[in-house]
């Protein structure tokens, strides 16, 4: 189940940021590109998320669109700043070729790198590279290697020239009121428009419900994965304990065998010595 892009609540302020539980706050902040700890104090979470919302208000939407186009993220041209910020948060690309200067500054700000107006592009790029964590860099390099291998294996996996970027089509499901009345008459047009608005409302609500169900299913899936990993770890521990016990018994057995050989060889040596002394007397 996938909710459409429009189904996402565009602004959490409308639902009340302060009313959200901590896990929802962390999820929301992470979607906006913030790195938040699960156990961070509530006040801290609210402060950081509000700062991010203020930053989004300050940022230029066109520059954000530039970033999405540069990273070839699928967005509508009419997407809101918050939707664009969500997409930009998913970008891990560090090759800044083709990115406009406003886009570069926007990306830096969203990644928490402070920039000044007269700072040269190269300096901003190097600061962005320095700001990348080692684990992110390793993950990016690993994925680049995997992508190169797969592109070689799959025919047509790496086209010579990338196709021109195209925005997602806009959602114009219903014609406007003027067109509707011209088409269906006054009463029919208004009725169709109302029906369309009601349909939109119901569709949006259904998408929201679907989104919540998806989240719950993800939670259940996550718990089942934890349970599975715990079970595997337990089984491996049991195998280890069994092996250690077997080795201890084997060592005991080895010691016993060694002692048995020592004790058994002593009477035999005595017997051989006695036989030798008898032969000497004779």
């Amino acid at each position: 189940m996938n909710g459409s892009e429009n189904s996402q609540p565009d602004d959490k302020a409308s639902t009340g940021l302060a009313d959200l539980p901590n896990d929802e706050l962390v999820r929301y902040g992470t979607e906006l590109g913030l790195k938040l700890r699960e156990n961070a104090p509530r006040g801290e979470l609210l402060r950081v998320i509000r700062q991010r919302q203020e930053l989004l208000v300050e940022l230029d939407r066109q520059a954000m669109l530039d970033v999405c186009v540069w990273a070839r993220r699928p967005v509508r041209q009419s997407a809101s700043k918050e939707q664009l910020a969500r997409e930009i948060a998913l970008i891990g690309k560090m090759d800044f070729a083709g990115l406009s200067r406003p886009g570069l500054i926007t990306l830096a700000k969203l990644r928490g790198v402070e920039t000044s107006r007269d700072e040269p592009d190269e300096q901003i790029k190097s600061r962005l590279r320095r700001a990348e964590s080692i684990s992110d860099m390793l993950r990016r390099k690993r994925r680049a290697v995997e992508a190169a291998v797969v592109a070689k294996l799959v025919p047509g996996g790496s086209p010579d020239e990338p196709k021109e970027y195209r925005f997602l089509p806009e959602n114009h499901a219903h014609p406007d009121l003027k067109e509707q009345i011209a088409q269906d008459g006054l009463v029919g047009g208004i009725a169709s428009k109302l029906r369309g608005v009601a349909d939109d409302y119901v569709a949006r609500k259904l998408d929201e419900i679907e989104h919540r169900i998806d989240r719950k299913l993800d939670e259940i899936d996550g718990r089942l994965q934890e349970w599975r990993d715990r079970e595997i770890a337990n089984r491996l521990r049991i195998i280890k304990i069994t092996l250690v016990a077997s080795i201890l018994v084997l060592l005991l057995s080895l010691g016993y065998k060694y002692m048995d050989r020592l004790v058994g060889s002593a009477p035999a040596a005595q017997g051989r010595q006695g036989a030798a002394s008898v032969a000497t007397r004779d």
Partner: peptide
């Protein structure tokens, strides 16, 4: 790490 431990234990065994 657990699998490595098991492999080492098997070698000792």
């Amino acid at each position: 790490f657990d699998v490595l431990q098991i492999i080492v234990l098997l070698a000792v065994f």
